[in-house]
Amino acid sequence: MAQVGIVVVSHSRPLAEAAVELARQMLPGSTVPIEVAAGTDDGGLGTDAVAVSAAITAADSGDGVLVLMDLGSAVMSAETALELLDDDVRARVLLSAAPLVEGLVGAAVVAAGGADRDRVATEALRGLAPKQAHLG
């Protein structure tokens, strides 16, 4: 069974933590690693590539890491973070274009079930499907 880690990158720490709380609600008893890299170190809005690379390292147990981001600098900081990682870790990391909240919930559920990284990534990208199906 794989243990894929997830990293949430957001401008806002409360936003990231609330998204993780929402996802964890679906995962009672699960220990799937979900790390947050969000906000500036003085508590403001912003992203920090060094913090993102540390979160990736913390979430990685060898089976890969999926990174979900909000917008703008979150994406560029995540890309920059890849440059700061060791080659072997970098090779296991995938940055996802999935919507942050929906993608996180979908990814966390399948990651908790032991899915591999590519399966977790696919599920994240399908995150909007239930809402789209419902609204027609």
Partner: peptide, 17 residues
């Protein structure tokens, strides 16, 4: 490294790079 860590916005990764 300081710029990519401390700026917070897009200019951090851009100037940092």
């Amino acid at each position: 490294m300081t710029m990519i860590s401390k700026v917070g916005g897009t200019s951090g990764p851009l100037y940092g790079t």
